[in-house]
């Protein structure tokens, strides 16, 4: 192993390479499988980024869909409406224009995150939850009233730039970033805030800043996920980014076991695929989904994929 890359960077690179190969073979997959796969990827980004806020930093946010909406609208406006002015900058190349639009979308979402976070992060627990929920709904209502982006009709005819490469590439980068951030010496502070905020503060940690960083980074990736979503589905509508969408993401984080990287990814995959598989049941789909959700929470409240680690098992055996 080359000494100038650490293990996780290598893993990231390997994942990106695999995704690249998968993309070059994707012509053989049917477009339904492809779109479900991309849905999975987008949910991984959403769940992992929310995991940074909810899981690792312990701040209960219910407004993730709002940030997703900001990113989706920004990116869609950039590639759709403003593309004629912009694309010469990128030589008319989609593979340069699209990531630029995504990143701008992410940045605007991050700004929204900062705007929301600054006043509300002083609140704790359920109060923070309701305030973020409120901001999410406010964002939705604002888009509903913005004639410039179609108002209640939403934006339609967004070019379908999203593909496996972009979606899973971004997903890998998101997971890596969250992981690397948490495992840097700076990032240990997030866990401290989650563990015991008062103790962390007493130790001299600037807890507000940590919460803010988690919020902004989370919002950034949610925005990028929104951009990918918009360019996968060709159309976006404010009502698609409501409170229920935020709840969907929260469920992934909690079923994944709050603050587990792999668990949350698996939960995102499971829930996305599950909702697709339940289509077989027609009208009963959502009933089955909700019963499954209740049963899962009752039987595995600690998260679906939490097993005693090998280390803990060894300790028990000894």
């Amino acid at each position: 192993m080359p000494s100038w890359l650490n293990r996780s960077q290598l893993l990231l690179m390997a994942t990106l390479a695999v995704v690249g190969i998968a993309q070059s073979l994707s012509g053989r997959l049917d477009s339904y499988i492809l779109s479900v796969a991309m849905g999975v990827g987008i949910n991984i980004i959403l769940a992992s980024s929310l995991n940074l806020i909810n899981g690792f930093t312990g701040q209960f946010s219910l407004g993730h869909a709002g940030f997703m909406a900001v990113g989706a609208y920004t990116a869609a406006v950039l590639t759709g409406r403003l593309a004629p002015q912009w694309s010469p900058l990128f030589g008319g190349q989609v593979f340069l224009l699209f990531p630029a639009a995504l990143i701008v979308g992410g940045i605007v979402a991050a700004l929204a995150g900062a705007l929301v976070g600054a006043p509300s992060l002083r609140l704790k627990g359920d109060y923070l939850a309701i305030v973020t929920l409120g901001f999410g709904e406010i964002i939705k209502v604002i888009f509903q009233n913005l004639e410039f982006v179609g108002g209640a009709k939403g934006l339609n005819g967004i070019p379908d730039y999203s593909n496996l490469l972009w979606v899973f590439g971004t997903a890998a980068i998101t997971v890596y970033t969250v992981w690397a951030l948490l495992n840097s010496s700076y990032g240990r502070g997030f866990l401290a805030v989650a563990d015991d905020e008062i103790a962390a503060e007493a130790m001299g940690l600037n807890t507000t800043r940590y919460k803010m960083v988690a919020f902004v980074v989370g919002a950034f990736f949610a925005g990028i996920a929104g951009g990918l979503f918009a360019h996968l589905n060709n159309s976006i509508n404010p009502s698609g980014f409501d409170f229920n969408k935020s709840i969907e993401i929260v469920v992934m984080v909690i079923l994944g076991g709050m603050g587990r990287h792999i668990g949350v990814i698996l939960a995102a995959i499971l829930l996305t695929v599950l909702t697709e598989m339940l289509r077989e049941f027609g009208d009963y789909r959502m009933v089955i989904y909700s019963v499954l959700l209740i049963l899962l929470m009752l039987t595995r409240p600690q998260g679906l994929f939490i097993w005693p680690t090998r280390k803990a098992a060894r300790r028990q055996n000894a």
Partner: peptide
Amino acid sequence: AGTAAPLVRKLIA
């Protein structure tokens, strides 16, 4: 909102 596109993809593909 946002559910129709994947469904139609499924029906077609």
